[in-house]
Design a binder for these strands. Sequence first.
DNA 1: TTTGTTTTTGCAACATACTTGCAAATATAC
DNA 2: GTATATTTGCAAGTATGTTGCAAAAACAAA
Lengths: 135, 135
Amino acid sequence: MQEVQQILKARNLRSTQSRKEILTYLLSNKYAVAHADVEKTLSELDRVTIYRTLSTFMEKGIIHQVSDDTGATKYAVCSHQCDSLGHHDEHVHFKCVKCEQIQCIDTVEIPDIDLPEGFRPLYSNYLIYGVCKEC
Amino acid sequence: MQEVQQILKARNLRSTQSRKEILTYLLSNKYAVAHADVEKTLSELDRVTIYRTLSTFMEKGIIHQVSDDTGATKYAVCSHQCDSLGHHDEHVHFKCVKCEQIQCIDTVEIPDIDLPEGFRPLYSNYLIYGVCKEC
DNA sequence: TTTGTTTTTGCAACATACTTGCAAATATAC
DNA sequence: GTATATTTGCAAGTATGTTGCAAAAACAAA
């Protein structure tokens, strides 16, 4: 059984053609991808199916969301053991101002912060903008 | 001359009715506001005028952007000396998972990060999710 | 305080991102 | 192979953001 089917089965998700194709695409991409990217690449799939599949993958901890300033949500495959109970891969993301690609910086954990009295932190997002290795 | 007019004049922006109302609203709000919030509150203003005004205020360093996981851009008044040449108020933002409001945590600077070889950071966004003081 | 110039606004139309309901199709378990 | 529950595709709708252009408003200077 291939990797994608194992990932789906482990989350009790049916191995449908759409899911296998979308997951394969996500795994093959070193950068975070937007819905539009999936749609362009897998053009035979319905837009709504792609939205729903990404949403399902999020819930099941297969992928995580990265929000940048463009308004379009991007997604990347989780590197560690995430599941329906939560995401456990709090790492920094890097967005290149030249190529505009977002990548996970898995080697760097998000540093903790001393918040003012009364604020209880749960999780966080840290996005660094700059010029990436490749550019 | 009122505060809002001084702010506009200092940036060489004409003191129009729309700008004065939108800026007053932004200043009166302790949380980050979305375009939709402005539209609901100042319902006599045209949608496009609000978009353009927020965009102008961004360029002139009057407000800054906060991106969260909802896809809708939010804005908050800059606390320090920002201008057309750039924003200089790199602070942490906090989004409450109960009331869903975003506020600036002006007292905490974004901690620096040691990026892998080859990455050149320029600026960053750090958003912490959790339960706020009020909730 | 009127006039001329430049900026801003409002409208129409468009573009992109995302959601919901429902019937038909498909995956899985038996 | 059949029953059942899940998933998909289509249609339609909502939310968010943009662009071009003519009319209106702000400002400066006579």
